[in-house]
């Protein structure tokens, strides 16, 4: 029955395009971009974000049409533009829509991100994951998220991969499974949508740091130390926001960390690498086509740690490294201060 309905992907960045191509193996897919000229370009070249478009992918600029034709939509835009995108769609959305997003970012209920300082305090209740943002800005309730080790370039190259679809609704997980599963793509389910979202979002912090460790040439022991201890900080923060620790052991957690923290293909990793090589954050940002979500995420994570009194030396050091020009040696010295604590405290 549902095979007759096309599926919509909102956002034609590299991951959006990769997902559209995956979906196109089983369905007709609308690929929406808010930029009309880009849609025209896709139509002419049949290319998007460096990937060839599957023949079943239809580029479009008409959001109302996409919302009317599709029951299942995949919003995959940067977290900066996420709220505006949902607001644009909201008038056309109904409670029978299913939205499965693939955006790895957080939003704030009140303050703008730019106003955040090192000492800013953010209460967990004022931080929204993208699923919470969808719920707040639209009538849609059947919401899911897509997370896991899904480097867009590798998916585009047809390498085998797997993902997690998390939702409170079995129906959403089943739909995601039905639509995405193929001989080169596996889909797992989870009910802990907040945990899966946070694992996917917060691991970008470590990807930046891991890139910096490489850039500094500190070796693999240092990287492992950094990632493992940083991960513990992230888990503690996530518990405050209502996540289930188990999600951090799955594909969206450990799985994604292994992929992003060791791959120069990851945007966040390259941010860290270039920082370590002495480039300024503003220049790095200006030179990238797509947003490195980890940069904003570090600001929010730092504010959360301040508010909830959670000791997060790694996040703090990264924050200072990026926004306060902390020099590298001081950063390392700070991290290596001996701490008399037990190894695993979060389980």
């Amino acid at each position: 029955m549902s095979e007759q309905h096309p599926v919509g992907v909102i956002g034609a960045g590299s991951f959006g395009t990769a997902v559209a191509n995956l979906l196109a193996e089983n369905n007709a897919v609308y690929l929406y971009s808010r930029r009309q000229d880009y849609v025209a370009e896709m139509q002419n070249t049949r290319m998007s974000a460096g990937q060839k478009l599957h023949e079943q992918v239809i580029p479009t600029h008409d959001i109302a049409h996409v919302a009317r034709q599709c029951y299942v939509l995949f919003p995959i835009v940067s977290s900066d533009g996420f709220k505006d995108t949902i607001r644009t769609m909201a008038p056309f959305l109904r409670p029978d829509h299913i939205l499965i997003h693939g955006t790895k970012g957080l939003a704030l209920k009140k303050k703008g991100l730019e106003k955040l300082k090192e000492k800013s305090r953010i209460a967990g209740k004022n931080v929204l994951t993208m699923s919470q943002l969808i719920r707040r800005e639209s009538v849609v309730v059947r919401i899911g998220c897509l997370a896991g080790p899904n480097l867009a370039r590798e998916i585009a190259s047809g390498f085998p991969a797997a993902t997690v679809i998390a939702s409170r609704f079995d129906e959403v997980i089943q739909e995601g499974h039905r639509l995405l599963t193929s001989h080169r793509f596996q889909v797992y389910g989870s009910h802990d949508i907040v945990g899966v979202e946070l694992a996917g979002v917060l691991k970008n912090i470590l990807a930046i740091g891991s890139g910096a460790v490489s850039g500094l040439g500190l070796g693999e022991n240092a990287r492992a130390l950094f990632i493992t201890k940083g991960w513990a900080e992230i888990i503690k923060l996530s518990e405050v926001l209502g996540a289930d620790v188990k999600s951090f052991l799955g594909l969206a957690g450990i799985g994604d960390i292994i992929a992003t923290c060791s791959s120069p293909a990851s945007r966040n990793y390259s941010v860290g690498y270039r920082l370590a090589k002495g480039e300024k954050i503003a220049d790095i940002r200006a030179s990238m086509d797509e947003v490195a979500e980890g940069i904003n995420t570090i600001r929010i994570a730092n504010g959360l740690a301040n508010f909830h009194g959670i000791h997060c030396p790694i996040i703090k050091t990264l924050y200072q490294g990026i926004f306060e020009d902390l020099n590298v040696e001081t950063g390392i010295e700070y991290l290596m201060r001996s701490r008399k604590s037990m190894d695993v405290e979060f389980l």
Binding site: M1, S2, H5, Y71, A90, P91, R94, P95, D96, R136, E137, S138, V139, V141, F169, D170, E171
Partner: peptide
């Protein structure tokens, strides 16, 4: 939330059909 009227039947629909789903 945006002040639009909702047809609550939509909550029980999947792919346009009214369905029964305990979960």
């Amino acid at each position: 939330n945006n002040g639009n009227i909702i047809d609550i039947r939509d909550y029980f629909r999947s792919h346009g059909q009214l369905t029964n789903d305990n979960q």
